[in-house]
Simulated scan of single mutants.
Amino acid sequence: MDIGIFVAIAENGVIGRDGGLPWRLSTDLKRFKADTMGKPIVMGRKTWESFPKKPLPGRQNIVITRDPGYAAEGADIVHSLEEALSLAERREGDMAAAGEACIIGGAAIFEQSLPLADRLHITHVLAEVEGDVSFPPVDWAAWRLVRSQDVPAGEKDSFPTRYAVYERLRG
């Protein structure tokens, strides 16, 4: 199973603020839903807790936490990235469109999964924003751009974006 990271990143690297997103990107959320539907989504506890409605429907929600007693209705609880990916692989047959485990945050989970990722699905937010969480550094020499689309700010979007998909160079 491939590993894909799905993230929106501001020009200054910011991905979060005050336990949530520092923007409103309705257009991007619709694309995110379409791209992750039917696939396992892997996230940390704080990302899970930031969702207003849980679980995200139509996807296997896998939450990573160090808390052995943590419970999250509608989600599978694991205690490491390795355990999350193993569970996603085992459940692949249950998910019609699965072939990619979707890593959706937060920063610590992104940092752990970046060396393992096959694909980066990045929404480049075309603005610098204030925030308290940033995406880890990426060695861009290890990636190639395979698709890119400029998306103007819609009526319910804070900023214009550029959606890009990068694949890891294998060599």
Rank of each mutant, 00 (worst) to 15 (best):
M1P: 10
M1Q: 12
D2E: 12
I3F: 11
I3T: 13
I3H: 11
I5K: 15
F6C: 04
F6I: 12
F6N: 06
V7K: 12
A10I: 15
A10G: 10
N12H: 10
G13Q: 14
G16P: 06
G19A: 02
W23L: 07
R24L: 12
S26T: 14
A34Q: 13
D35I: 10
T36Q: 14
G38R: 14
G38P: 04
I41P: 05
I41T: 14
V42R: 04
G44M: 07
K46F: 02
P52T: 04
P52Q: 05
K53L: 04
K54W: 01
P55W: 02
L56D: 03
L56F: 06
G58K: 06
G58E: 04
R59Y: 01
Q60W: 05
I62W: 06
V63M: 03
I64L: 08
D67F: 03
Y70Q: 00
E73C: 05
G74P: 02
A75N: 10
D76Y: 09
I77R: 02
H79Y: 10
H79G: 14
S80V: 12
A84M: 08
S86L: 04
A88N: 14
A88E: 11
E89Q: 15
R90T: 09
R91Y: 03
R91C: 02
E92T: 07
E92S: 13
G93F: 11
G93W: 09
D94M: 12
M95D: 10
M95A: 10
M95L: 12
M95N: 07
M95G: 08
A98T: 03
G99T: 05
G99W: 01
G99L: 03
C102G: 03
I103Q: 07
G105L: 08
G105R: 15
G106P: 03
I109A: 03
H124V: 13
H124N: 14
L126A: 03
V129H: 07
E130Q: 12
G131N: 01
G131L: 01
D132N: 13
S134C: 09
F135G: 01
F135D: 00
V138M: 01
A141F: 04
R144P: 00
L145R: 13
V146K: 15
R147P: 02
R147L: 08
S148G: 15
D150T: 06
V151G: 03
P152D: 10
A153V: 07
F159A: 00
P160L: 06
T161E: 09
Y163P: 00
A164Q: 15
V165G: 00
Y166H: 03
G171W: 03
